[in-house]
Design a protein around this nucleic acid. Sequence first.
DNA 1: CCTCAGATGGACT
DNA 2: GTCCATCTGAGGC
Length: 195
Amino acid sequence: MEKLTKSFYERDTLTVAQDLLGKLLVREIDGEKLICQITEVEAYIADIDKACHAYGGKKTERTKVMFGPAGYAYVYLIYGMYHCLNVVTEAEGTPCAVLIRGVKPIKNIEKMSVLRYGKKYNELNAYQRKNFSNGPGKLCKALQITKKENKMDLLSDALYICKENEIINYDIKKGKRINIDYAEEAKDFLWRFYL
DNA sequence: CCTCAGATGGACT
DNA sequence: GTCCATCTGAGGC
């Protein structure tokens, strides 16, 4: 499997967001690879987007990783108990990111199940299987992604994203982003992409 | 299938 | 003190 390069992440955020769909998110823990396919993302673009944490060039300890070079992880705590994983995009000095909102488990689902629910996958009920990793907080739990992974280089071996072996043309759906009602006109931007 | 309340802590003002 | 790029379990249909 071939890792996505820095130049992949350095492009326009809306392009990167859509190109991330179908790609493989790889998390390596204790020498084991947990692999998921990305199925849902959202774009956040500071220049014009009141929902972006770095809107208006707001640079704080939390947001500063978005101001750095592309291809790094931006992980933050939300609602006091969950984490969200983002991928930093665009040139250095242009604070933008893509939120990974949903993934499908591909490999090592047993380990993910223990991280997510503390149980083996075959012990999960239908509801738990359906909601295994279809949300930003859920996938971070299943892949053990916390603030420790903030600012991590996505070209490293512990957390990275790969191309698929074959080229597949996906049917990409678009919609409004979730839970950003406060963002005024930006709440209606069609910057959520999913398969 | 749906809605709703509650959990919970850090970033920011 | 207020605001969250969320999830869960309980209860209703």
